[in-house]
């Protein structure tokens, strides 16, 4: 919240008490500061965007993500307008108009039906939404934890630092998918718990180490010293000076977390270990348990749409992350800015 405050000017140049406007504003008000920050952020965003656009793969991947987002949005709209819930519901629907299931693609069911007579396109679209929810929740949890842990560990050092870093070492020493498989044996995992667990593991694990090393290099910058000299408290320095400067790198690791989360969900669903209504992994699981997968190309619509969606969305987030890496890390750029 920005509260308007009476501006308090220190005037340099003109004689005191003169009616001339001040030449240099040494102590701007909060609203002006916020404006200046916003302008700076906008400028660095534009600069970053210009570098990002240079990477053709990055732009293409971003377009893929937007396409999938449109798919996710389209499902509720289609269900509300043209699709009858009895036929097209991704879980309980049944295509009465076809005699055999799985039936190949046709006009009413553009991607055919699955062995249980449900519309594959509807399943695909409705799963897209849950993949986004899962990926983004996991990424936000990861980055929220990792940024805080990284900033705090780098700023305070000592015991706090070594405690968090040993914890991170422990977590990266554990293979994540195997751990999730074990957890699924012990607890019923739904989408939310899965996102939370992936987020917590990522946030206290590898991402925290990387963000901490970045925070360490921020901590020794002159502006941190200046803030301390100006009387800024610990929490002020961490919140206002360290964390905002960590955010670009955090954004980068959000992308990688999304990839990991979607992949983990798909694998666990494929193995039939999750408590979900519908997902791309479950679509392949259904086809596999029915024995349709080794039919090869004959039942392609049961596996190709879901498999390709997982691959494309995962690699799109991964490649956007890599393109962002070139923005964040100047040493990778082709031209020095």
């Amino acid at each position: 919240m920005i509260t308007p405050q009476p501006d308090h000017h220190v005037v340099i140049g003109g004689p005191s008490g003169s009616p001339e406007p001040p030449l240099v504003d040494l102590h701007p008000g909060r609203s002006q500061m916020a404006m200046a920050r916003a302008r700076l952020a906008l400028r660095s965003f534009r600069g970053g965007w210009a570098i990002f656009v240079e990477s053709r793969i990055g732009v293409l991947s971003l377009a893929t993500i937007v396409l999938f987002a449109l798919m996710a949005i389209s499902h509720p709209i289609l269900m509300a307008t043209v699709w009858d819930a009895e036929v097209y519901d991704p879980v309980t629907g049944y295509a009465f108009d076809r005699l055999e299931h799985p039936s190949p693609p046709n006009w009413r069911h553009p991607l055919g039906t699955d062995p249980l007579g449900r519309d594959v396109l509807s399943q695909l679209l409705s799963s897209t939404r849950s993949e986004f929810i899962l990926g983004i929740t996991a990424a936000l949890v990861t980055v929220g934890i990792a940024t805080t842990v990284g900033a705090v560990a780098a700023y305070y050092g000592g015991l706090v630092d070594s405690l968090f870093m040993r914890l991170a070492d422990l977590i990266i020493a554990l293979p994540g998918i195997s751990l999730l498989i074990v957890l699924s044996a012990l607890f019923k995992l739904n989408l939310f718990y899965l996102a939370l667990i992936i987020g917590i593991l990522g946030g206290f694990g590898g991402t925290a180490i990387i963000l901490k090393s970045q925070a360490l290099s921020i901590r020794v910058k002159p502006y941190i010293e200046a803030a301390r000299v100006a009387g800024g408290g610990h929490s002020h320095i961490i919140l206002v000076h360290i964390i905002p400067n960590l955010l670009p790198l955090s954004l980068l690791y959000m992308m990688f977390t999304v990839t990991g989360a979607i992949f983990a969900e798909a694998v666990l669903s494929f193995l039939g270990l999750l408590d979900l209504r519908m997902s791309w992994g479950i679509m392949i699981h259904t086809a596999n348990t029915g024995g349709y997968l080794l039919g090869g190309t004959r039942y392609w619509w049961l596996i190709v749409p879901a498999g390709a969606s997982i691959t494309f969305l995962c690699s799109a987030f991964y490649l956007v992350g890599r393109a962002l890496d070139e923005v964040v890390n100047p040493r990778l750029r082709r031209h020095t800015a």
């Binding site: 798909a266 392949i284 879901a306 997982i310």
Partner: peptide
């Protein structure tokens, strides 16, 4: 592109 696709490919589907 092929490396990243393989890297992020859905492992079970790719194996099958």
């Amino acid at each position: 592109i092929s490396g990243a696709t393989l890297f992020t490919a859905f492992t079970p589907a790719f194996g099958l």
